[in-house]
Amino acid sequence: MIRKGNLEDIDAIMHLTKACAKVMIANGIYQWNEHYPNKSAFRNDVKREELYILEINNAIKGTIVISTFMDKEYIPIKWLTKNENNIYIHRLAIHPELQGKGYAQQLMDFAKRYAIDNNYSSIRLDTFSQNKRNQKFYELRGYKRLGDIFFPKQSEYPFHCYELVL
């Protein structure tokens, strides 16, 4: 079941994202660390009603943020659509014990349905340049890579920006 996230979910989400970070680091992907993702970001997501949870057997096993807010880091990117009517995907995570079973696709399908139902022009996101699995995941779903941005607190490596025109 996918539902809106709330403040009571944040500790479980942090446990989930720490488990994901541990697996990524073990695989040489230094995308998430002690600075990101953090409780403050998830609290803000809840306040803006943009946090969604994947719940399986009453346990939080995945999360996604569907936002209408364009971060300043995205300004230099030459997007395929105007910066007026877009959604942005952040903090997509599936517990490592369930990765590779279609749950990330389920959350992305949910985001796409949300965007279509609400007449958005496109879905935008970024993914870490060192995370080839994520890049393939988005590219197989029709997302176009457009340029790079940097988050110095996360990594010295760039993050690739993607857009799917609806």
Results as ranks from 00 to 15, higher is better:
A41P: 11
I25S: 11
C20P: 01
I25K: 13
L80W: 01
A26C: 08
A21G: 05
N86Q: 10
A19D: 02
N86A: 08
P76Q: 08
I87G: 06
Y74E: 07
N58Q: 15
I60R: 06
K61D: 06
N27F: 09
R91C: 04
V23I: 15
N27V: 07
C20W: 03
L92D: 01
I94H: 03
C20E: 04
W79F: 13
A26G: 06
N58L: 12
W79T: 05
N58F: 14
A26R: 10
C20I: 08
N44V: 11
L80S: 03
I29M: 07
T63S: 10
M24R: 00
I77R: 10
V23K: 15
E55C: 13
S67E: 07
N86P: 03
Y36D: 05
D45H: 03
I75G: 07
N57K: 15
I53A: 00
E49H: 15
D71T: 04
I94A: 04
I89E: 14
G62D: 00
D45E: 14
A19C: 03
I66P: 00
I64A: 05
C20M: 11
I77T: 13
E49D: 15
V23R: 15
K61Q: 12
P37I: 04
A26K: 13
L92T: 01
F69I: 13
T68W: 11
K72E: 10
F69H: 14
E55R: 07
K39G: 15
I66T: 00
G28Y: 04
Q31S: 00
K82I: 09
E84G: 12
Q31L: 05
M70W: 11
V46I: 06
G62A: 01
I53F: 04
R48M: 09
R91A: 12
A93N: 06
Y36M: 03
T17W: 04
M24H: 00
G28D: 02
Y74N: 07
I75H: 10
N85W: 00
I29W: 10
E55Y: 09
E84H: 14
T68G: 11
I25L: 09
Y52C: 11
K22H: 15
Y30R: 12
L80D: 07
I89K: 11
Y88F: 12
N83M: 14
L92H: 01
L51H: 08
F69R: 13
Y52P: 01
R43N: 12
D71I: 05
A21D: 01
P37V: 01
W32V: 02
I75A: 07
E50N: 15
T63D: 04
E34W: 07
S67P: 04
H35G: 09
I77A: 10
K78D: 15
Y52G: 05
I56N: 09
W79S: 06
K72D: 11
E49S: 13
L80Q: 06
E34A: 13
I56L: 06
S67L: 09
N86C: 05
F69Q: 13
P37D: 06
A41E: 12
Y36L: 03
A59F: 14
E84Y: 13
H90F: 12
T68P: 05
E84T: 15
W32I: 00
K22P: 06
I64H: 01
M24L: 08
K61E: 09
N86I: 08
I89L: 13
N83G: 12
I75F: 09
K18T: 15
N86D: 04
Q31N: 01
